[in-house]
Amino acid sequence: MTVAMRDAYGEALAQLGGLRPDVVVLDADLGNSVRCDGFGRLYSDRYIQVGIAEQNMVGVAAGLAACGLVPVVNSFAAFAVCRALDQIRVSVCQTGLPVKVVGSYSGLAVSKGGSTHASVEDIAVMRALPGMTVIVPGDAEEAAQVTRMLPDIPGPVYLRLYRNAVPPVVPAGYRFRPGKAVLLRPGTDVAIVSTGTMTARALEAAGRLAGRGVGAAVLHVPTVKPLDEEAVVDVAARCRAVVTAEEHSVIGGLGAAVAECLGERHPMPVHRVGVPDRFGESGPDDELLAHLGVDEAAIERRVLAALGEGGG
């Protein structure tokens, strides 16, 4: 059974509240959407409803963190990152304070919210901030593990979550480790390097490609920054091409990070699957993702093209 990532987050956050009395949760009036409200029902003295004011929320979190607490701020990814960017830049990253910014409803599938609510640039923006760790879980289990670990990951963290259910991708017994990628499937023709929701789609694409005689490795990269360069180089070096996949703009996200890494350390073709240079729009989630070329079929097409075996 698949669990919505936001539900897994909410449950793990409430568990964390019981384990860590220094964790404080801040909500900009979206708690029932992003599911941080369960924490508030259990620990009302450590749940701060700041109202619809994301900039202030991040600043308040910095003040809390400066006094030894571990604040977790919650909003939609689009608002947590872009609305409060200067506050994250100055009050959080320049101070190095352990503020954990959780951007839910990331990517394109935001319940028909359209361009204002979709978030296709947040990884790029957060990745550019010195000192910011960027984590994009691939499924509910991994999201829960990262959530419970948030206080133990030093300094500022951006946790990018997804509204909907995602098929499980991490194996039984998996333990998330910050900064570490995980090879979910071996292969020597093409390396699909993916993050977040696109890892499930990469695995689906790899299965289809196997039926066509193409061996596709799938490297799941939950920590986009700092990038696990060794794992990326290692899987790339054993393949003829690299295809990256993310529910994010092709500019500045995982694909860019992988291209930057390989450009310096192991030059080879890197093909990026992601949102073209444009904003999101409204539509049923699956139709929207297919329309913008952010699904398993797009990955498959891109792999075949990269290997020169048909497709565009």
């Binding site: 404080v24 003295d45 450590r46 701060i48 900039q55 202030n56 991040v58 600043g59 308040v60 979190a61 910095a62 003040g63 809390l64 963190a65 400066a66 006094c67 030894g68 607490l69 604040p71 200067d86 506050q87 830049r89 100055v90 009050s91 320049q94 101070t95």
Partner: peptide
Amino acid sequence: VDMSTGSLGQGLSAGVGMALAARIR
């Protein structure tokens, strides 16, 4: 120096956080 500043308008929010931290703790 208890808080970094320089981009205007951010200090009062951090002050709210510090006052809240005293209350919580």
